[in-house]
Design a protein around this nucleic acid. Structure first.
Lengths: 337, 337
DNA sequence: TTGAAAGCGATACCAT
DNA sequence: ATGGTATCGCTTTCAA
C-alpha cells in the first residue's frame, strides 16, 4: 500500500498547528457566538486561508443534524419536474440546507432503494416527487427521525407530510371551461402511467361531464410525453367524429395533441377543437401553442415544503392542497358558439 | 435542555447490543469481503432489520472517500441543462456515487460560494456546468484532493479537467448548411450572456461567412431564452431586408425566432428563411418546429465525466471535445434554389 | 472468526 | 479566553 490513497483534505488540527493554537480555538473561530479573542481569531483565519481549510460538515453532522435534504425524483427532463426541482433546490439552498438528488426510475423498487440511500446519508428529510414509496419504508425513515414530504403523490400514506395541487378542482374547472365554450363531444387525453394525480384528473373530469349528461372518450396512448399526445390526437381524429373539446391531463400531452390536430388534420384551435391542459409549463406559452391551462403553483409549493422542514414535525397533518391557477390563453373559445 | 434534540438514528452499537455481538461484527457484516461467520451474520442482519439500521455513510466518509459528487449548475429549467443533469445524476448513481446539486446563480461570486460548499461536504469531485469559477478556488479544490470537472466552460483553467462540445465545428457546419441552401443575407441570433461557448459559436460562424465574402448581422436581444429569440426575430424582420439564413446559437433562441418569423411576419420556413439551431433539445423535434440543429451528445459527455472520476487524476489532460451531431429536420432547404 | 481499541474531524463541556 | 477531553458512528488494525 502506498500513500496515494491518503486524503489530503486539510483538517482543523493542521490549522491549529500552523496557527500555534489548540484545535478548540480553530473550531471556535468557525462557530458563531463562540468566545475567541480577536488576536487568535486572526491567527486562525490566516492559517486557514493559507492552507485552504474548510470545515468538514460531514464530521459535524455526526453529532448534530446533517442539514442534508434528499430529493427523490424521476423524469428530470420533464419541464414540470425540472421546474419543481429548480424551485426546491433554490429554496433549500436559501434555507442553508444541502440538496442531494436521487434520480430514480419511478417504479417502486427503485424508489425504495433511493429512500434507503437517504437513510445512509443521514438526510434530515426526504422529499419525494416521483413514485410511491412503500409504507414500511416511510415508517423506517420516520423512526429514524427523518421527515418525509410527499409532493403530488397518493395521499393515503401514514406519517408522511403531504402537499400537492388540487387535481380535482383543476379537472372540474377544465370541464366547465369546455362546457362554456359549447363543446359537446368531449375527450380526455391521458397517459398509461396510472399515477394518482393523473387518474384523479381524468376521473373528476369524466364525472363532471357525466353529471352534465355528456359522454367522454378517454385515450391513453403511452407515457406522459409529447409523443403520446401526438399519437392520441391521431387516434381521436382518425375516427369519424372527432372531439370538439379535449382535456389533456398534462401540458406535454396537450402540445402533442395540438400539433396532431393542426398539422395532420388541418384543424383550427380553438375554432374546431378546444384544448385545455394542466401544469402550465413554459412551452405552453409559446406562440405556436398559447395553451389554456391550469398552473401548478410550484413556487408556493416549494415554499411550503421548505417551511415544513423548519417546523417541528406536524404529525397527522392534513394534506395541504394548492389551488391550480387558470391561465387563459387561446386554445379555448371565450364563449359558446 | 430536553431530549427533543436527540437524534434517533439507529447506530451500529444498538444493533450490536440487540444481536449480542460486538460493534466490529456489525461493521464487518456490512463490509464486502470481511470475515464473518454465517451465524453472526444472520443475527446481525436480523437485528438490523428489526431496528431499521442503515450504515452511516457520513461517518464512513470520515476515513475514506465520501463518494459525494457535487453538481454546480444554474438555470436548471433550461431543457439542455435539465438534460445534462439528468444524464449525470443517472450515471453517477450507477457508479454508486451520491449527487449533491447546487443550484446557483451563474455569476462568479455565487459559483465561488458553491465551490466552497463542495469543500465543506468533502465531495470527491465537483462538476461545474455553469459559470466560471475563479482559478484560485479551483486551486484550493485541487489542493484538497478534489477533482474538478468543467463541462462546456471556458477552457483556460489550469488543473481542472475539461470537456465539452466542439462549438467551432458546429458553427462552421451551420454556416455550410446555410451556404449550401443558397442563403445570402445571413444573421446570427445570440444572447447577451457572453459565455465562452456562445461567443465561440458566434465568432466562428461570422468568421466562416466573412471568408466566403458574406456579411452577418448579429442580434442579441436578451438572455438565452425563447423570449429573446422571439424578440430577435422581431428586430431582424422589422427592418427592410430581413435575413434569409439564420444561425441561432441555441435551440431555445431558434424556436422563439421561428415563431416570430412565422406568426408575426407570415414567413415560411425554410422557403423564405432557413434556420439552424444548436443543442438539440427535445422541443426542436416537435411538429410545430422540426428544427435542423446540432446535437450535444449529452449521454457521451456524461459517460466521459463519470469515467474521469474513476481514473487517477489525469493531470494536464487536454480538453476533450465532442463532435456535435447534425440533426436534419425541416428548417433548412435541402439544396440551393 | 471475534472483540477491543485507535483514529477519522469536529463540537461541547470542563477546568484553568 | 484557552486547552484538554469525551463523544458522535464507523472502519481498521491488532490480539486472542
Amino acid at each position: 500500500m502506498t500513500d496515494l490513497q491518503r486524503r489530503p483534505f486539510v483538517s482543523a488540527r493542521m490549522v491549529a498547528e500552523r496557527a500555534g493554537v489548540s484545535r478548540s480555538a480553530v473550531s471556535r473561530t468557525f462557530t458563531d457566538g463562540a468566545s475567541v479573542s480577536e488576536a487568535t481569531r486572526r491567527k486562525v483565519l490566516a492559517a486557514a486561508g493559507a492552507l485552504g481549510y474548510h470545515v468538514n460538515h460531514l464530521a459535524r453532522g455526526l453529532r448534530e443534524n446533517s442539514n442534508i435534504v434528499c430529493l427523490v425524483v424521476a423524469d428530470l427532463t420533464t419541464p414540470i419536474r425540472a421546474g419543481l426541482v429548480d424551485e426546491l433546490t433554490r429554496k433549500l439552498q436559501a434555507a442553508s440546507k444541502i440538496t442531494m438528488v436521487i434520480n430514480t426510475e419511478s417504479d417502486d423498487e427503485s424508489v425504495a432503494t433511493a429512500l434507503r440511500q437517504t437513510l445512509n446519508y443521514r438526510a434530515d428529510a426526504t422529499i419525494v416527487l416521483s413514485g410511491t414509496p412503500p409504507a414500511s419504508l416511510i415508517e423506517t425513515c420516520l423512526a429514524n427521525g427523518q421527515q418525509v414530504i410527499l409532493i403530488n403523490r397518493a395521499d393515503h400514506l401514514q406519517g408522511s407530510q403531504n402537499l400537492g395541487v388540487d387535481n380535482a378542482m383543476g379537472a372540474r374547472e377544465a370541464f366547465f371551461l369546455l362546457q362554456r365554450a359549447g363543446c359537446r363531444r368531449l375527450a380526455v387525453v391521458t397517459s398509461t402511467a396510472r399515477t394518482a394525480s393523473l387518474l384523479q384528473r381524468e376521473d373528476v373530469f369524466v364525472e363532471a361531464a357525466r353529471k352534465a349528461g355528456l359522454d367522454v372518450a378517454v385515450t391513453r396512448a403511452g407515457p406522459t410525453t409529447y409523443a403520446s399526445g401526438l399519437e392520441a390526437g391521431r387516434r381521436l381524429f382518425g375516427r369519424s367524429d372527432g372531439p370538439d373539446g379535449v382535456f389533456c391531463v398534462t401540458d406535454l400531452l396537450a402540445l402533442g395533441f395540438m400539433d396532431a390536430a393542426r398539422q395532420e388534420f388541418g384543424l383550427r384551435i380553438p375554432d374546431d377543437v378546444c384544448v385545455v391542459g394542466f401544469d402550465d409549463i413554459e412551452q405552453g406559452g409559446w406562440e405556436s401553442y398559447r395553451l389554456t391551462t391550469f398552473a401548478q403553483p410550484l413556487a408556493a409549493m416549494a415554499d411550503h415544503a421548505v417551511d415544513l422542514l423548519a417546523e417541528p414535525h406536524a404529525w397527522g397533518s392534513e394534506r395541504k392542497l394548492f389551488e391550480p391557477l387558470p391561465v387563459w390563453r387561446r386554445s379555448v373559445r371565450a364563449n359558446s358558439r
